[in-house]
């Protein structure tokens, strides 16, 4: 019973915050809603018993990406968000497309009846994940660090002033 209450509370928080991200006219409010939504997704990870992903989500998304987006909103934002229209003219076809997608997705989920309950209690995942990262998946793991280094270099390159 407690599990149901927690899940539906988290689902409500995630859905409302995501709607806030998409629909609120002021970009600052959208960014704050994004942080709330990402924290809700971290709660979903915790309820699924994946402890390391929960910590990584809080650290990287809520503590890193949401704060980074807030900084850019403060740097590049303007007060015009309240006056000018924030949604483009194609909102009706987009709404139809997204409604169609959501309806089809829910029909597929219902059709395959993934109504199974978890078969075992969740276990700590950190040790097994470390074994995978340094064992079978060592090469993708190193490739990811190269991608991070390249993106950091690219960000510095784009962000610096032009040498004239």
């Amino acid at each position: 019973m407690t599990e149901q209450i927690i899940f539906y509370l988290l689902a409500a928080v995630i859905t409302l915050a995501a709607l806030g991200v998409v629909l609120l006219p002021t970009l600052m409010h959208s960014a704050l809603c994004l942080g709330l939504c990402l924290a809700g997704v971290a709660g979903i990870f915790a309820s699924l018993g994946s402890d390391f992903i929960f910590a990584a989500q809080i650290l990287v998304y809520v503590g890193g990406i949401a704060v980074l987006i807030l900084f850019v909103v403060l740097l590049a934002g303007s007060a015009s968000g309240r006056i000018t229209r924030q949604i483009n003219a194609q909102w009706l076809p987009a709404l139809l497309l997204c409604g169609l997608f959501g309806w089809a997705f829910l029909k597929i989920v219902a059709h395959f009846s993934f109504g199974l309950a978890p078969q075992s209690a969740p276990e700590p995942t950190v040790r097994a994940l470390a074994g995978l990262m340094l064992g079978d998946y060592a090469v993708p793991f190193e490739l990811i660090s190269i991608v991070l280094l390249a993106s950091m270099t690219g960000a510095v390159l784009f962000g610096r002033r032009k040498a004239e």
Binding site: I14, T15, V21, V22, A94, L97, C98, G102, F105, V109
Partner: peptide, 9 residues
């Protein structure tokens, strides 16, 4: 699915 549809919109 709901979250993805909202993001797509």
């Amino acid at each position: 699915g709901v979250l993805f549809a909202i993001g797509l919109f």
